[in-house]
Amino acid sequence: MKVQQSFTKAKDQESKKAGTLYLVATPIGNLEDITLRAIRTLKEVDLIAAEDTRQTRKLLTHFEIPTRLVSYHEHNKSASGSELIRLLSEGLSIALVSDAGLPAISDPGAELVVAAAEQEIAVVPIPGANAALSALIISGLPTDRFLFTGFPPRERKALQEWLQQLRKQDATIICYESPHRVAKTLTAMLELWGDRDVAMVRELTKRFEEAARGTISECLAWLSEHPPLGEYCLVVAGANASDAKDLEGDDKPWWTELSLEEHVSRYEGQNLDRKEAIKLTAVDRGLAKRDVYNEIMRK
């Protein structure tokens, strides 16, 4: 067991050999989201590790922060992470920031925290703005119990499995989604979860901040008339008591009772062409595309 405690006494600070990893929250839109403590920390640390140095440099320039900036992201986390741990072990203090909001949430910063904790390097949070929680509190949905799930899987089959695992969850569900995939994800939710209440939140704390509240089908209709722009935070109602009763003991895939033709037609109803619909049907059922095509064309 390892216990990390705050070093409040000067003698404790002087005796501490390793440096400190600070997880610093940055603005999610409006630059005024940043805290005074975050600005001070970014000025005082020896090094700032950023997910996107170009984005972070704009922030540092705005607040006149001269601290040296290095890159730490998904594609260089192995090499860069090892080097950052080495520097921390030698006594340097480092601030970790993401593109926006709290670092280590849906980004490789979480792995750096694990590595630091394993080396008994102090990890200190510098709280601030967070898109998921900001979306939750304006969603109009229950906030007493919620589950943050990051980004949904991109592949259709993986997405179906992900939704199946969450469909009995009675807590409010929060996830992020890109503008290019938000309609597809909502359509899949409608298929497996039913027409639940949802809030689509985007551009938080920015000039064009928007929260669209309604059922999933209403939000899909909204998106058909208002093309998605910017990254979305989806806040979806959990399964209610009647949903849970209906779903109890029912772990069958949504397409179980459909014929191959009906299965393909359901995908075509989601504005997919026949070729793509056949491909997805084959993936769902574990069949070869040719077999699905031949069976349908035979009728």
Results as ranks from 00 to 15, higher is better:
W254Y: 11
A50R: 07
L88W: 12
G249S: 10
V24L: 02
E51R: 08
K157S: 10
C233G: 10
V124Q: 12
S89L: 13
Q160Y: 10
D99P: 08
L234W: 00
N30C: 05
E14S: 15
L59Q: 09
H180Y: 14
A183R: 09
L247K: 13
I126F: 06
R145T: 04
W254D: 01
I137D: 03
G150K: 11
F146P: 03
G194C: 01
L147W: 02
H75E: 10
Y267A: 05
K184E: 12
P228A: 03
I85G: 05
E218A: 03
K184F: 12
T143E: 09
Y293Q: 06
L96Q: 06
P228I: 01
N294F: 08
R266E: 11
V182M: 03
D170M: 03
E32D: 14
E210Q: 13
T20E: 06
L163N: 01
T35R: 13
Q13P: 03
Y293S: 03
E177M: 03
G29P: 10
D195K: 00
E120C: 09
E261A: 15
I85Q: 06
G269I: 00
M1V: 12
R37I: 06
I296E: 08
Q160F: 11
E191L: 13
A188E: 06
P108M: 05
G269W: 06
K279H: 15
C219G: 05
L141R: 08
A38I: 07
E276P: 07
D52L: 09
Y176C: 01
T187C: 11
H263P: 04
R207A: 14
L136Q: 07
L190S: 00
E218F: 00
E248G: 08
V264H: 07
Y293M: 06
A244Q: 15
P227T: 04
D107L: 11
Y22K: 07
L247A: 08
P253S: 05
R86E: 14
I173M: 00
W222K: 04
L141I: 08
D284C: 13
I121W: 03
K16W: 14
E32H: 12
Q165H: 11
N271T: 10
L59I: 11
E276C: 06
D291F: 04
